[in-house]
Design a protein around this nucleic acid. Structure first.
Lengths: 340, 340
DNA sequence: TTGTAGGCGTTATCAT
DNA sequence: ATGATAACGCCTACAA
């Protein structure tokens, strides 16, 4: 670096172009309110100085940031990645920037991140799932930040959501599994504390059992934290505690893949001895061997629809229309009829 | 909402607490410059109003944003996810916020994203790989934004990097493969345009061939875009065009997993008929069947070291110390000695 | 320890 | 169509 020249400001451009700052501002924001000739002069100065507007100043003066925040449980694996990419692409096409933060599935961190993004002037927020502390919702309300929920759908709530019904999706899957003759079911669940998706998925299995005249209380449940290794451990626990199990549902594909691995290590054949069912349909599911039977989640569509809805809300005030998407079973190699 | 009460400002808090705005500001930024008593009063007012500082104003007044940007090729899969999460966690512990943007592996989009993040006042930037247009580097220099390169390491360049030597890593892997008797090698590469990692990995294989007195020109190369499906297609091409191939290197695990799948579909046995080698060691690699032999990349360490380096640079001016990490072969099921 | 006041770079409302 | 100029909300010398 030769010299620490300070970044050029609007004023510098104005001086260079021989106009007022107001005119430069207009050139940049409303080009057609300005003469062709003036515009040319100004743009030339802009380029010469390679001026680029100061975000903070602009945010302060216009009281808008063109920023939309997304807060997801984790970036560690691909569960939210595909949807997020679609969300970001859509926002980008509207001229918005996406800010991401992750919570490691912890409610306290989520609240912190919400404050951080709101503090940074996010014009709106995308959140995963409905369940969080009243405090958090109160904050969002007083701050007047529009919020959209995704990865869930629940009309009984007033908050808009664009997602799918976790309970119904899991119920449909479970009905198919029961139809194949499975009676001894287990469920390896993600932590259900402040996680409505996990709870809903459990309820879905129980619904299916009730419909099929099985006793929901017979569902063998193990709750564990996220991770392949945790899924493996949980699978072993299940097989030890309830060895008659023929079908193991998992709260998500990551756990399911762990279960699959441990099954192989234990000499338990999938699907001949026990069927394994996941949820999410991320890349892992296809790649696993045998390929995982799972509930397909419309990642991309959810993402872009959410992006579009928020962009239009912020831009034109178009109210968000709740949208329920389908999440359907995908049958692959890990599910087979129950023996006998 | 009952009333559209405007967000509280520093002034509001000051009034409520019966002090000046300066005192409130100090309470928030340098708590120990203020009496315990005063602080208590102020914090109470802060909570009562649930005040949270305006980012733009703060950025403008302090000329710092406490924001560090990261620009990665894609969020679609887990390649960069683990490292990014570690990066973000480390930044967070220093009080920084991470901004992410993705480029879909396109140089023009990368440049746009760099401008966007700089425009938003990013105090520093994390970029993947060294190779980009001189224009882009010039911009970064005139804007005076410190930049750290990761996912690569090259002392011949003056730019600091914290990463690993792609060429050396791939060479080491290739040497092992050749040692196992493989002579007919193929390489399914990611696009090499403006992608120094892809090029380096290719060079690594060629280096190993040269060392082993094989003709580097005999390496059968296929270049393709990112994706499982693309890896599958490329594998088929390779086996059709060079059926004597016994070892297929892939530029990354995603392509490798695609190759694996197509091999199964084609009735080609891995590793009996052909060995498949990946790069990155993401979750997919472990989960694939057979589990993928691949080059392990120290995702997390790279991420947190990068975060620490940038945070300390921005905070204390500590210059970045380039760090070379190891990326070593991991031998799993897809590699076996060549037949005969 | 606390208060006063000027300035940070834009936008937007008025005039002209 | 263009130009003054008053906000915008916070930080930080400097003064008290």
């Amino acid at each position: 670096m030769t010299s620490d020249q300070p970044t050029p400001t609007l004023q510098d451009v104005a001086t260079a172009a021989g106009v007022s700052t107001a005119t430069v501002s207009r050139c940049l924001n409303f080009p057609d309110q300005v003469t062709k000739r003036t515009r040319a002069k100004v743009m030339q100065a802009v380029n010469a100085l390679s001026y680029s507007p100061n975000f903070g100043a602009r945010a302060m003066a216009s009281r808008r940031t063109n920023t939309i925040g997304a807060i997801i449980p984790t970036m560690e694996n691909a569960v939210f990645a595909r949807g997020l990419q679609a969300f970001q692409d859509e926002l980008h096409s509207y001229g918005f920037t996406m800010l991401v933060a992750s919570t490691s599935y912890r409610a306290d961190i989520e609240e912190e991140q919400i404050r951080a993004l709101v503090g940074r002037g996010a014009d709106a927020l995308l959140l995963i799932g409905h369940e969080r502390s009243p405090n958090t919702y109160r904050f969002l309300e007083t701050q007047n930040v529009p919020t959209l929920i995704t990865w869930a759908f629940d009309t009984s709530l007033t908050r808009p959501s664009i997602g799918f019904d976790n309970r119904k999706a899991m119920r449909d899957m479970a009905l198919k599994v029961i139809e194949l003759g499975h009676r001894n079911l287990a469920f390896i669940s993600a932590r259900t504390t402040l996680n409505d998706r996990a709870k809903a998925r459990q309820s879905g299995i129980e619904d299916a059992m009730a419909i099929s005249e099985l006793r929901a209380s017979d569902l063998h449940m193990v709750e564990t934290v996220y991770g392949i290794e945790q899924g493996a451990t949980a699978f072993e626990q299940v097989m030890k505690a309830a060895s008659q199990t023929t079908a193991v549902f998992c709260g998500n594909d990551v756990l399911a893949v762990g279960a699959l691995r441990r099954a192989r290590e234990m000499g338990v054949r999938v699907p001949e001895d026990v069927s394994v069912i996941g949820f999410d349909d991320i890349e892992l599911a296809e790649v696993a061997y045998p390929a995982l039977t799972t509930v397909h989640v419309p990642h991309r569509e959810m993402g872009w629809r959410a992006g579009k809805a928020l962009a239009e809300l912020v831009t034109n005030g178009t109210p968000i229309e709740a949208i329920e998407l389908d999440a359907n079973p995908v049958f692959r190699g890990t599910l087979a009829p129950a023996k006998g």
